[in-house]
Simulated assay, not measured.
Amino acid sequence: MKVLSIVGARPNFVKIAPLHRAFSQHHEITSKIVHTGQHYDPVMSGIFFDQLNLPKPDFCLNVAAGTPIQQIAQIMMEFEKVMLIEKPDLVLVVGDVNSTLACTLVSVKMNVPVAHVEAGLRSGDRSMPEEINRILTDAVSDHLFVTEQDAVDNLLSENVPATRIHFAGNVMIDSLAYYKEAIQNASILKTLELNAGSYVLMTMHRPSNVDGREGLERVLKIIKRLALLKTVIFPIHPRTWKNMGVYGLKNEFENIKNLKILEPQGYLEFLNLTKNASLVVTDSGGIQEETTYLNVPCITLRENTERPVTVKEGTNYLLKNADEESVALVTAEIFAGNCKIGQIPEGWDGKAAERIVAILREKYINSYVCDK
């Protein structure tokens, strides 16, 4: 059985690492990694491969930057070449980035089965590019591996046959659990001269928050308010930093007392910062999951979330139409000790990849042997 696993952006690397490791435990499976190049900057890509012990990709598509449509089109054309060479039995995609959709469409058109890991997540907001990627990928994939019950319900409501849906758990948590000791030993707090619990960790990269002046000015006001209480650590996405310059706001951010702006961090360093933060303020999907697993309070600045289990069961607060006042009110409750008592959702136990590989082996190897 030959599997091509697709990576393109940082969250993909975290999810593919445990799957590739699980595939490699079985001699009858050949696991190859295709890197589309969607995240091509070394700080957004290379360091994650190193820290997650991922081998050098078998194929690098080296897709250039461009609009989402240009990027998807380029990935499709380059991935078709790989498919013609490799003729895989299965293509495995994760998450909801452009690489996920592009490679799925190529595979389906070439009659190769697709397994989508982290399927069924829905925000209900089709203005999000990721939402369209998720819906289209799920509609044509053969195997849908989900992380939470809401995802199962979403797929069933879209008339997806139950036989295609598998409740497997969360592979992102597999990586977190596997590298727990290495995360704990990361020296980032010492480097930044921080103590555990002494700071708020901030990440922002969604277009609604950072692609326009209004969103960036709102983030600026929120950080100013948080910085009155504790040091704010802000590992900054390249696009966010670029847009601060476009709107002439870099100096205003840099002049905030108690704000430390960092380059994007490696996987181990960032999770160490997350684990030891008193609060995380974000617009990221994956960080909502990681904070829930680590039992760290999280405020998500978005109108919706495709990961409602982090709000229902975890430590996540979803703040819609958030401004500095609403963030300050929730922060005050958290710092007063009145934060949520979260729990780890079902299947977030570090063994999701093993369950996924077991299901795929049963489908593509054991059933084939039995048929013979």
Score class of each variant (00 low, 15 high):
189 L>M: 12
259 L>T: 03
356 I>W: 14
45 S>G: 09
235 P>N: 04
368 Y>H: 10
48 F>L: 14
199 Y>D: 07
242 K>M: 08
265 Q>M: 12
39 H>T: 04
77 M>E: 15
117 V>N: 09
177 A>K: 14
253 F>W: 01
80 E>H: 07
336 A>V: 08
76 M>D: 07
231 T>F: 01
294 L>H: 00
365 I>E: 00
55 P>Y: 02
187 S>C: 03
354 E>L: 15
281 V>M: 05
160 V>S: 10
228 L>S: 14
286 G>Y: 02
230 K>T: 00
194 L>K: 12
141 S>R: 10
83 M>R: 09
234 F>K: 06
157 S>N: 14
222 I>C: 10
299 I>F: 06
226 L>G: 08
83 M>H: 05
8 G>E: 04
96 D>I: 08
301 L>Y: 00
327 V>F: 01
41 D>L: 11
269 E>P: 03
185 N>H: 15
128 M>I: 02
345 P>T: 00
82 V>S: 09
250 K>F: 02
166 H>M: 07
221 K>G: 03
272 N>G: 10
240 T>P: 08
51 Q>P: 07
67 T>C: 11
259 L>E: 01
73 A>V: 08
107 S>P: 09
183 I>T: 05
140 V>N: 12
39 H>R: 07
363 K>R: 15
306 E>L: 04
173 I>Q: 05
319 L>Q: 02
269 E>R: 10
118 E>M: 04
146 V>T: 15
86 E>Y: 11
1 M>E: 02
370 C>Y: 05
134 R>V: 01
86 E>R: 12
9 A>G: 08
349 D>C: 11
123 S>N: 00
82 V>I: 11
303 E>P: 02
160 V>W: 01
132 I>Q: 06
98 N>G: 14
285 G>L: 06
49 F>C: 09
78 E>L: 10
335 F>D: 11
251 N>M: 11
319 L>A: 07
231 T>R: 14
212 G>A: 11
164 R>P: 12
13 F>T: 06
45 S>A: 13
342 G>D: 03
184 Q>I: 06
12 N>R: 05
3 V>S: 13
273 L>R: 03
165 I>A: 15
57 P>R: 02
22 A>C: 12
169 G>R: 11
148 E>F: 09
